[in-house]
Design a protein around this nucleic acid. Structure first.
Lengths: 224, 224
DNA sequence: AAGCGCTTGTGAACGAGAGCACAAAGTGAG
DNA sequence: CTCACTTTGTGCTCTCGTTCACAAGCGCTT
C-alpha cells in the first residue's frame, strides 16, 4: 500500500490539521528544521500518539529516529488541506461581524482571498470595507459566477441566512461558513460549518455553574 | 433514583443544549406550546433519538404520547446551562473582532452581560464602544474583582493572548472564550473554548478540494 | 372502563476516536 | 559491520457517542 487510503481521512484528523499547520508555521519561522512528534504535539496541544496517527493518514512523511522535516510537512499538510491553491471567498452580510471578518488578516495568509462583500442594506452597499466596495445582494449570483467562488461566509442576521444560503447553493457554492445563529438546510453535497458565539458562551456558563454552586446559596431544591 | 446522574452530563450533550434552547425559543415565539422530539429534533437539525437521549439526561420532562411542554423545557434547559443567572463578561482586545463581539446582541439575550472592555492600545482606551468606555489593560485585575467576572473573552492578537490569559486566571476567571489563534495553557480547573475562524475555512477548503479535483488537471502524482 | 394510537425513555448494538505500548526502521558510534 | 539509541507508524483496547428498536406510559375515544 503505497498511496493508500486517501479516500477516507477521519473528520477528527482533518479538524486538527490546521492546528498542526499553524504550529509548524511558527516553528518554521523560528528556524526549526526538524521536529519530533513529541515536540510538535506539545506545540499543538495534543497527544503525541494522536499526532502521529493523524500524520500517518497523509502518508509516511517522517523519518524514524529523527522526526519530521518542518518545511516538507508544512507543504504536505497544506496540500492535503487544499491550501496550495487560492480560494476566492465572498462574505455576505456586513454588520459588525462581517466587517470584522472582512478585515481579518488570518484569511489571506492561508490561501483565502476575500473577493467580494455583499449586503442587502442600501446604506451599506457602496461603502468601502477593507479595500472593497460592498455590492448589493442582487449581484450575488453574478459575483459568484464571475469570481468562481466556491466558499462563502454568511454573516447576516438569522432571518436572512437561509435565503442567502439557498441563493449561494443555487449559484454553485458548495462550502459555507455560517455565523448566523440559525440552522441551514442544504443539499447533500454542500458542506456547512457553523460558528456560533453565543453557543460557546453558554457551554462555558454550564461549566462555570457546575464549578460554583457555592456562590448562590439558593437553588438547592434537588439535594436528596 | 429521583435526581440521579446530575454529576455526569456528557460533553456532547452539553454542546447541543444551546441548540435545543434556540429552537425552543423560536417555537415559543411562534406560540407553539408543545413539541414532539421528532419536531424539535428537526428544528435543531439532529436525530430525534439523540435529542430524546440528551433531554433524558436532565430528567424526565416529557409526557409520553404528547411530547414536551415548550416553556417548561426552555426553563429546564436554561437552568441546566446556568442561564437563569446573569454572567458578567469582560472582553479583552478591541480590534475589529472585539468590536463586533461587544456589539453582538446574542450575548445579552441569554444572560450574558458585557460589563467591561479592555485593550492595551492607548489610542483605543477611553473610546466608547457599544456604550462602554474601553479600559486600559492595567485595570484588568481590578475590573474582574469589582465586577465578579468569571467568564472572559480574549480577542487580542495571538502574541498577547497567553499573557492576558494568565492574568485573567490569576484574577479568578475560570472560563475563557479564546478567539486568538494561539494555544492557551491553563491550570486544570480553567475551561477554555476556542473559536478559530481560519481553521474553519481550512476545513472547508479540504472538503472543497476533495469534491473538485477536476478543476485542477495537474497534481496527479499519486494515482497508482 | 377498556382499548387504541402516539410518543417518550432506554437497553443494546454499532461505530468512531483516543491513547497505550511495541515492533519496525532509521541514525550514529565504535 | 554491529550494536545501541531514537523516533516513527500502527495493532489493539477502551471509552465515548450515535443510532436503532422497542417496551413503558399517557391521553383520547368509544
Amino acid at each position: 500500500m503505497t498511496s493508500h487510503a486517501k479516500q477516507g481521512i477521519p473528520a477528527a484528523t482533518v479538524a486538527r490539521l490546521p492546528l498542526y499547520l499553524r504550529a509548524l508555521g511558527t516553528l518554521s519561522d523560528e528556524g526549526v528544521t526538524t521536529v519530533s512528534s513529541e515536540e510538535l504535539a506539545a506545540a499543538a496541544g495534543v497527544n503525541s500518539a494522536k499526532l502521529r496517527k493523524d500524520l500517518s493518514q497523509l502518508g509516511s512523511y517522517g523519518t524514524r529516529g529523527v522526526g519530521y522535516d518542518v518545511d516538507y510537512l508544512v507543504y504536505q499538510v497544506s496540500r492535503e488541506l487544499g491550501l496550495t491553491q487560492d480560494w476566492p471567498v465572498v462574505i455576505v452580510g456586513l454588520g459588525h461581524l462581517g466587517h470584522a471578518l472582512a478585515n481579518y488578516g488570518g484569511f489571506a495568509s492561508r490561501g483565502f482571498e476575500v473577493r467580494a462583500l455583499v449586503d442587502a442594506d442600501p446604506d451599506i452597499v457602496g461603502t468601502r470595507v477593507a479595500g472593497l466596495v460592498v455590492s448589493p445582494l442582487d449581484a450575488l449570483e453574478e459575483i459568484i459566477n464571475a469570481q468562481g467562488v466556491a466558499i462563502a461566509v454568511i454573516a447576516t442576521p438569522a432571518m436572512a441566512a437561509q435565503d442567502v444560503c439557498d441563493r449561494l447553493v443555487a449559484s454553485g457554492v458548495s462550502s459555507i461558513l455560517n455565523f448566523a445563529p440559525s440552522m441551514l438546510v442544504v443539499p447533500e453535497h454542500v458542506e456547512v460549518r457553523k460558528v456560533d458565539l453565543s453557543i460557546e458562551l453558554q457551554i462555558l456558563a454550564f461549566h462555570e455553574q457546575r464549578k460554583a454552586p457555592l456562590l448562590t446559596p439558593m437553588a438547592q431544591a434537588a439535594t436528596s
